[in-house]
Amino acid sequence: MAGNTSNKQGSAVTAVNVAQIAGLNTLGISLARVDYAPYGQNPPHIHPRATEILTVLEGSLYVGFITSNPENKLFSKVLNKGDVFVFPQGLIHFQFNYGTNKAIAIAALSSKNPGVITIANTVFGSNPSISGDILAKAFQVDKKMKGERGL
């Protein structure tokens, strides 16, 4: 079934891992269906315990991952129906539906419990909050800049 994409990201991830199917225990695999509204995205995130292979079932996606320090090189590509892309374990990656139609993808992951750490939610949504001074210095912005949540 299609996920509800009427949210700020315009995407829905429906996970199929050991939490949903106990029979996956010890098998080292899981899946996720990702639905994207037009211009929806699966924002930058990592899977600390799994490599991901993404297959586009419908629509087109701009996808990419960034290597780790010191290179921080972006590897990206536009994928169409039937195309496949691999995101190495632990690297920041994303998907964006740049089209005016919905898109659907299936992600296969090399762990029964791959985990997900969404970068912006983690950094800006921690409880307690990370000090605005630390965030301003890390992102090289003026602390006086304020977004929806502010620094």
Rank of each mutant, 00 (worst) to 15 (best):
S68N: 14
S6V: 11
V16T: 12
F94H: 04
N7D: 09
S110Q: 01
I92R: 00
M1L: 06
G115M: 05
H45S: 11
K81P: 09
V18D: 06
I46P: 10
L61C: 04
I29Y: 03
A108I: 04
F85C: 10
K146Y: 03
I117K: 10
N17L: 08
L24N: 11
H47M: 07
D133L: 10
F96D: 08
E148N: 11
A138R: 00
H47C: 06
N101K: 15
T51W: 00
I117Q: 09
F124I: 04
P88L: 05
A107V: 03
K102E: 13
N7C: 06
G150N: 04
K137S: 15
Q41D: 11
H47L: 07
H93W: 03
S131M: 04
S76G: 15
Y62Q: 13
I29S: 09
T5R: 00
G115E: 01
A50E: 08
Q20V: 04
P38Y: 07
I53S: 07
S60D: 14
G23S: 14
S126E: 10
I106E: 12
K77T: 09
N80Y: 05
P88F: 08
R49H: 07
G40P: 03
E71Y: 06
N101D: 15
S6E: 13
K81E: 13
A15G: 08
I92G: 01
G150R: 02
N113T: 09
L24S: 05
P114Y: 03
A2E: 15
I130H: 10
T5D: 11
A107S: 14
S110F: 02
A138Y: 00
L135R: 02
A105H: 02
V34C: 07
Y39Q: 15
E58A: 02
S76H: 10
T67P: 10
P70K: 00
T100Y: 09
K144C: 04
L27W: 01
F124C: 10
G115L: 05
N97V: 05
Y98T: 14
R49V: 12
S129K: 15
F85G: 11
L91R: 06
